Amino acid sequence: MNIAKTVMLMTLLTLVLVFAGGALGGQGGALFALVLAGALNMGSYWFSDKVVIKMYRGQQVHSGPLFEVVAQLCQRNQFSMPQVYMLPQSTPNAFATGRNPEHAVVAATEGILQVLSRDELMGVMAHELAHVQHRDILIGSIAATLAGAIGFLAHMAQWSMLFGGGRDNEDSNPLGMILLMILGPIAAMLVQMAISRSREFGADAGGARYCGNPRFLASALSKLETANQQRPMPKVNEATAHMFIVSPLSGGGLASLFSTHPPMAERIRRLEGMSV
């Protein structure tokens, strides 16, 4: 279900890119923007583990409760053992990164060990391992590339309109260019966020299967949401917020459309209704 939804959303994002390229005068502009955005995002994809771990001052661990839980999950499900990092932040949270299961990193904050039981910690780390097994870092990088290309084309349209470049281009569509400037980046961001939310649901379901009990993760999510509301994580880089199991950013109402995470109540409801 989540795979089919992700494919549909990625297709929609591609169609927005095709429309944006057509509005600027053909496939050449869209291809150039796609290549440029791809080059920028591939660097992020390839080195994401090192960059993010350094950003949050993570230290690799080879023993202790966090390492033992990850090792147990990997042994049970016959996964490659990722690198395990502990982050010094007191706000409980966790994330996974890395370009593939053989070069993966899972990380959790020190605060998560203070609020979760071992079973709940197992549910959280199973969720993160699900992101690794589903290759969600790659999917997110592709989505970011497409969205970035659309944003680049919108900027090109803006400069073209300002300096009158569109008047000399028979293939350009002035109305399409105006719509691209206004709606293109918004549409791309909405679809990109929807893809991220879909992958979170997928990781919840996968994590529930990997740990053997959906209620482990459901209980953990409830505690993590409460803790993050009571003591938000300081100095969060918005570009990395989508990686965490619970969003470290606040927002509701209309802002939820641009959220990288699904509503917590819906995530918990789905988990509590699962059987494995």
Rank of each mutant, 00 (worst) to 15 (best):
G165V: 00
L179S: 05
Q158C: 05
F163S: 14
D171L: 13
S172E: 11
M161L: 15
Q158K: 07
D168F: 14
L179G: 08
G166F: 13
G184Y: 04
L190H: 04
I195F: 05
L175R: 14
G164D: 12
A194L: 04
L180S: 08
L175H: 10
L183S: 09
G164R: 09
S160R: 13
Q192M: 12
L183D: 09
P174I: 12
S172V: 08
A188E: 02
G164F: 15
N169V: 12
A194P: 00
I195C: 06
E170F: 08
G165T: 00
W159D: 07
D168R: 07
G184Q: 05
I182Y: 09
M177I: 07
S172W: 03
G184F: 04
L190N: 04
Q192Y: 10
A187G: 01
I186L: 13
G176F: 04
M193E: 01
L190M: 14
F163I: 10
G164E: 07
M181E: 08
P174A: 13
G166L: 05
G184V: 03
A188K: 02
M193D: 01
N173I: 03
A188V: 04
N169W: 09
V191I: 11
L190D: 03
I186H: 03
P185A: 07
Q192L: 05
N173K: 07
Q192I: 00
D171Q: 13
N173P: 00
I186G: 00
A187L: 07
L183F: 14
M189T: 09
L162C: 00
M161W: 11
L180N: 02
G164S: 14
R167Y: 07
D171M: 10
I182L: 11
A188I: 02
W159S: 00
D168I: 05
P185K: 00
L175K: 10
S160V: 02
L183K: 04
F163V: 08
N169C: 13
S160W: 08
Q158L: 09
L180I: 04
L180H: 07
G166W: 10
N169E: 06
F163E: 13
W159G: 07
G166T: 09
Q192A: 11
